[in-house]
Amino acid sequence: MSASLIYDLAPIGSIVAWSDGTPRPPERFRKKLAAWKTRNSHGRLIRKEGERNVGTTSILPYFTLHEGDLGANGVIAIRIHRTFSLDSGLTFKVVGRPALGSVRVFDRPGANAELVHLADNRQAAAEWLSRHGYPHAVLSEVTADEVAADEIEGRTAA
């Protein structure tokens, strides 16, 4: 599916895979394999942002995926995020959706909010939030409408 379908149909918290369609190189070609992995991977959908204008330039809508974390001993040093605009030539697929009743923790209210945690329920979200410093956090429960949005206007989202 295209990037615009992910933007339109996939709920925040979904696991999304992306691919350029090329075959995976053998392990012995480390540089080629590393380059391939940047164009073929997966991550959790954490943010969607609509079209913006900066001066006379118009920026297309985009979405951001959390690919992973780097660190040691329980300390995260670097978060790996990938941002894709709707004109991306890559192919995307929704691999998993957030479970019904799970609770998303956003870093702030509003349209520019970013998902920082996906908990199993409201109590788990509150416990996680008490251990992490997000003073303006917003909790949002995953609804049946979002989970059931596999097919909208004849377009399939999985």
Results as ranks from 00 to 15, higher is better:
I12Q: 01
P135Y: 00
A157C: 11
T83M: 04
A144C: 07
I6E: 09
A126D: 10
I152W: 10
I12D: 00
N53P: 04
S130L: 08
P23L: 09
R155A: 14
S14R: 04
L70V: 10
D8E: 13
L70K: 05
R155P: 11
T56N: 15
S58K: 14
P25K: 03
T83L: 06
R155V: 15
R24M: 15
A144F: 09
H132I: 02
R104M: 06
S140V: 12
R131K: 13
G50C: 09
R108P: 00
G21S: 05
R39V: 07
R79A: 08
F29P: 03
R82M: 02
D87M: 05
G89W: 08
L45K: 03
H132C: 06
A137G: 04
Y62W: 14
Y62P: 03
I15N: 04
G13N: 04
G101P: 09
A113P: 01
H42W: 02
P25W: 10
H42I: 02
I46K: 02
P98K: 01
G110Q: 09
Q123F: 07
H117G: 02
F63D: 01
S58V: 15
D120F: 12
R79Y: 00
A17P: 04
V116P: 03
G50K: 07
S19V: 01
R104V: 02
G21F: 03
M1R: 13
G43W: 00
E151H: 09
V138P: 01
I80N: 02
P109R: 11
T22F: 15
A124K: 08
V147Y: 12
E49Y: 09
V116T: 08
V75K: 13
R28Q: 15
K31L: 07
L9F: 06
N73A: 08
M1C: 11
T22H: 09
H81I: 00
R47W: 02
D120K: 13
I46F: 01
R155W: 12
E153L: 13
N73V: 00
H66I: 03
H136C: 11
A126G: 13
P135V: 14
S140P: 08
S2Y: 11
T57E: 15
T143Y: 08
E141G: 10
L70D: 14
I12C: 00
D145V: 12
S102G: 07
G13V: 07
G50M: 12
A111S: 13
G71C: 03
S4Y: 14
V95I: 14
P26K: 02
E127V: 15
P11A: 08
K32R: 10
S14F: 12
E151Q: 14
W128E: 09
L45I: 11
K93G: 09
I80S: 08
F63R: 01
V116S: 03
S130C: 02
K48E: 05
A148P: 10
N112D: 15
V147D: 04
A35F: 05
A77D: 15
T38S: 05
N40S: 12
A158G: 14
A77M: 07
R28C: 14
L9P: 09
Q123R: 12
